[in-house]
């Protein structure tokens, strides 16, 4: 694997303050993500993972520590980092096309070029024929395809995905995992993918970082070097599944 460092988190901590005391949400995260690597942040519970992702995205500032993307310190959001959110992030007043081209429209790309690029990514996620459909008419899986196309369309260096399939039913979830692997295989990006689903983590990851719950800190790392596409019932898959699940933070 190419070992160019794309994302570097340098002892990142985040404390949320309520009226009298502070809560550690993210604690001392040291993390390096390499070029075109598919990194999965795997951990239980609701606490901290989204915050960590938002810090990398630049939407949230760490209380201490620093994040670098391509050797530049992150001080705010930027178009080199695309984000895919859990479920309700599509703009309901825009069609598929409108949603996908939203980012490059904000970046001032002309209409003709915009349409061409948006169409390319709509085709990539398999939504040709739904360009003029509003999100309310799309299924959960299709909505997430739009979300992925929208993040891809600004052609970011890094894709940050925050439990993108968390709201989908089990069948659609498997399908979308396979789709995402194919998409990622065709359009390689550095991906940071947050999930609490071990199968999803094992199916997609080059490397899994297991997180502790509350505050979020790194528990252990696993490099997953199984060949792709992986079988959910492969021998090594099941072995790793058992091993990682056994090593999870059980405190909820």
């Amino acid at each position: 694997m190419n070992k160019d460092v794309v994302i570097k988190c340098d002892s990142v901590s985040k404390i949320f303050y309520s009226s009298d005391k502070g809560f550690d949400v993210v604690k001392n995260i040291d993390l390096t993500v390499f070029k075109n690597e598919f990194l999965v942040l795997f951990g239980p519970g609701q606490c901290g993972k989204t915050t960590l992702l938002n810090i990398i995205a630049g939407l949230d500032m760490p209380t201490s520590g620093k994040v670098y993307v391509n050797n530049k310190e992150v001080i705010g959001p930027g178009p080199e980092r695309g984000v895919v959110y859990q479920s309700i992030s599509l703009f309901p007043w825009l069609t598929t096309m409108g949603n996908v081209e939203f980012g490059i429209k904000a970046a001032g790309v002309g209409k003709k070029e915009r349409r061409k690029r948006a169409q390319y990514y709509i085709d990539l996620v398999g939504l040709q024929g739904f360009e003029n459909t509003y999100p309310i008419k799309l299924s959960g899986g299709m909505k997430q395809r739009v979300g992925i196309a929208r993040a891809y369309c600004i052609e970011p260096v890094v894709m940050l995905m925050d439990e993108p399939f968390g709201a989908l039913d089990a069948q659609t979830r498997y399908l979308m995992q396979k789709e995402l692997e194919i998409i990622w295989g065709r359009e390689k990006r550095t991906v940071v993918f947050v999930t609490n689903n071990i199968e999803e983590a094992l199916f997609l990851a080059d490397r899994i970082v297991v997180l502790n719950n509350c505050p979020t800190s790194i528990r252990q790392e696993y490099v997953i070097d199984m060949p792709r596409p992986r079988e959910y019932t492969g021998e090594k898959f099941l072995y790793l599944r058992k091993e990682i699940t056994g090593n999870m933070d059980k405190t909820l």
Binding site: N54, A57, G58, L59, G76, P77, G78, P79, R81, G82, V83, Y85, Q86, I88, S89, F91, F102, G103, A106, A107, R150, I154
Partner: peptide, 14 residues
């Protein structure tokens, strides 16, 4: 206005 919509806008540099 949903926060997540504003996040999307901000990540796109609006």
């Amino acid at each position: 206005t949903l926060n997540v919509h504003l996040w999307v806008g901000r990540t796109f540099g609006a």
